[in-house]
Design a binder for these strands. Structure first.
Lengths: 168, 168
DNA sequence: AAAAACTTTCAATATATTTTGAAAGTTCAG
DNA sequence: CTGAACTTTCAAAATATATTGAAAGTTTTT
């Protein structure tokens, strides 16, 4: 397989992976493109390469910058903006975890916290089953949340590799 | 907050969590409903509770059964089918991991494997950057994959709690 | 200060995903 | 076998999500 084929295949695959895990397909593709780019890319480069509109590039680049996965890289003496992706893949992983934890896990935890305080007759079997299920789910989600938190905070490479070994 | 409010809130939240992690919202809601149900539910019960059509219930129940998260529970002497969710929340988590690993992580790994064998001049900076990025991503995805595999295989409660402690 | 070179916005449009419900299929008691 | 009770299927409709592109906004150059 030659370079162009490989590149396209990778971008497609990364897009699919993203979209099946709740990340906009195009955002993931733009990210993929920047991850493998040896040099900074402009909005135009991305438009051409992925055949998408200017507005779409702009929106997704902004989202990537928001996630901390991409940053602007202004080339001296040029008006145009260029973009670079964070290349340390562990950092990429923790940045993604951080964002998703904030956006999805934490709101879910807040709801679990609320509903665990359901009022009513503790002997009612519906309430009993509900309380028990929520309690179990809550403790699992809390565990997942704190695990993610720890992985995120462990962004020194020494700690990182130590933790990764624990998981091995 | 009373039982009905809490229940609805939980079902909604579980649906949102599912849908932002790539699981059909309705499937997650049906699952939520079964998770907190003290007794088996029929297709009709689910239709009424979630206000969705019979076909929709059928499809999503079948999906949940496919994932191993729900099973049929035929009540003696009744034609109608009843359904029960797996209540052990750790088992629920590993079943979900198992399915997603199979559906998404493994195909992605196969693509990474393929594209890492890109042909071409190793001195070309595009190829160099590509090969390096793919190598790093591959090793991270492999690590994630094998971690999930280990968690999945650790479904004895002793091992489970040991591993969970490691993550604490 | 006007034009040029860009970036951002967002309403309209296109695409993808989910849901419905009626028809077809299945099972089983009589 | 027949019909009642239930389940499954799937094309059409509804809904949700993503994309476009032209207009508006911004910054720099002349």
């Amino acid at each position: 397989m030659n370079y162009t084929e490989s590149k396209d295949k990778f971008i497609k695959a990364w897009g699919n992976l993203g979209s099946s895990w709740g990340i906009n397909r195009t955002m993931a593709q733009v990210h993929a493109l920047l991850l493998i780019a040896p040099d900074p890319l402009s909005a135009e480069d991305i438009m051409e390469d992925l055949r998408i509109s200017r507005g779409n590039v702009n929106m997704n680049i902004r989202a990537l910058i928001n996630w901390g996965l991409v940053h602007k890289d202004n080339v001296h003496g040029e008006r145009k903006e260029y973009f670079i992706a964070e290349k340390d893949i562990w950092k990429v992983a923790t940045l993604i975890m951080k964002e998703r934890r904030k956006r999805e896990l934490e709101p879910a935890l807040r709801v679990l916290e609320q509903v665990s305080k359901v009022e009513g007759d503790k002997r009612d079997k519906n309430i009993k089953a509900f309380t028990e299920a929520i309690g179990n789910i809550k403790s699992l989600v809390e565990k997942a949340d704190s695990t993610m938190e720890k992985l995120i905070k462990a962004d020194e490479s020494f700690l990182t590799s130590t933790l990764l070994k624990l998981l091995k």
